[in-house]
Design a protein around this nucleic acid. Sequence first.
RNA 1: GGAGGGGUGUCCGAAUUGGCAAGGAGCCGGUCUUGAAAACCGGUGAAAGGCAGUAAUGCCCGUCUGGGUUCGAGUCCCAGCCCCUCCGCCA
Length: 421
Amino acid sequence: MLSAKWVRDNLDAVKEGLKKRGMQINLDRFLSLDSQRRQLIQEFDELRHQQNVYSKKIGKLRQEKGNPQEIIEEMKKVSAKIAEFEEKKREYDEETRNFLLNLPNRCHPDVPEGDANAEVRRWGEPPQFDFCPRDHEEIGESLGILDFKRAAKMTGRGFVLYKGLGARLERALINFMLDLHISRGYEEILPPFMTNYAATQGTGQLPKFRDDLYRCEKEDYYLVPTAEVPVTNLYREEILDEEDLPLSYVAYTPCFRREAGAYGKKIQGIIRQHQFNKVELVKFTTPETSYGELEKLTLEAEEVLKRLELPYRVVKLCGQELGFAAAFGYDIEVWLPSQERFLEISTCSNFEDYQARRASIKFRAKANKSTHYLHTLNGSGLAIGRTVVAILENFQNRDGRILIPEVLHSYMQGEKWIEKP
RNA sequence: GGAGGGGUGUCCGAAUUGGCAAGGAGCCGGUCUUGAAAACCGGUGAAAGGCAGUAAUGCCCGUCUGGGUUCGAGUCCCAGCCCCUCCGCCA
């Protein structure tokens, strides 16, 4: 979140960000609340000061065998007043906190105006077919590697079951991506797949996006919607050394999302599921280096598509598409032959200090040992299910077989084709 | 799931019947030394926050977390979290 002080001092930037995001939030209400709150704090602190001074006097008097009864009577009144103020202060603090938790991050000046993303670059050529390309759902079912009906039977709508070479392809992709990122300097994390309330609030999913999460009621634990949540919370409430930054992590987790109210052709098959696999990249950096690191992280995610020989493009996210907690971000979109469009397969974001402030993650500066919030970044590298979609569609043959990308052969015990058994 | 023990700074660790949160290690500087270590001297250290102020600074908060009792809580009471030991269950 942003701090009350920052919002107060940077009203124009906050307004600009809200405008780009197309959001309406009443800042005047916040401002009057904030000034009332500060007035209250001053009076409250003054009373506390009085209490501290006189309490010491009472202690001293008692040691000298004097009678402090008169002061005690007087201080009872002060104490009662403090209790009153405390109640009010709690209300103000709560209201301020609620406001700030529901305020999105600011927008970086480079975030495009309007409601359209801006294309930055393209790689590869969409494949030309001398037949009508089928969509992944049809391909998957006809090859017997995807089973939606039986997944619905054991769980419900929005789940899928991978079989045989389909399951092996999914698993191969997870390992291929992890190995690639590890070889390029990322450290692997295998985190818990559930997080507690504080952690889930730290990255911005709570309280605003409560309805998008699966919750274990008894423990108040949340199934992770992305590895970003546990991995960013690695250092919650910690102070790191500047020399140790940037830190780069890669983590595989399944992701669980309720996705309430999403239907339609665009998200058919395994494009949007309640459970999907993802390999995620997370970085902790200093404020000075975060945008440079975002470029590197994005290229890292692109590298996966290059090696899989899948055509894609990169777009700069406009304010309305930008995540709630992000200040700036790119989408990587892979070519989808059946729909003749690009499909989002990775979002790479710089959260600046928004998550760090929520989760209280700081670093100690080398120069003067002062502490500052660090910057957090993340990006999918990549969403596994959608990568399967892209492979099935882009590498399909007239005869219904699927050519497995060469880099995956060693991960699939030499299999080169997915075909009907 | 049950029983017991514990949580104070970067680390170790005190604080009596409730009354200014010891001491040590470390860190920084110095003396000594060819250089270092050791020793000695001095300094520093209770996070992070918050409020006021141009600032120096002042004040509030702050002993795992949240409540409560009290003029006053590290200390007393209640609830919770985490760690350790033992018992039960268990892939």
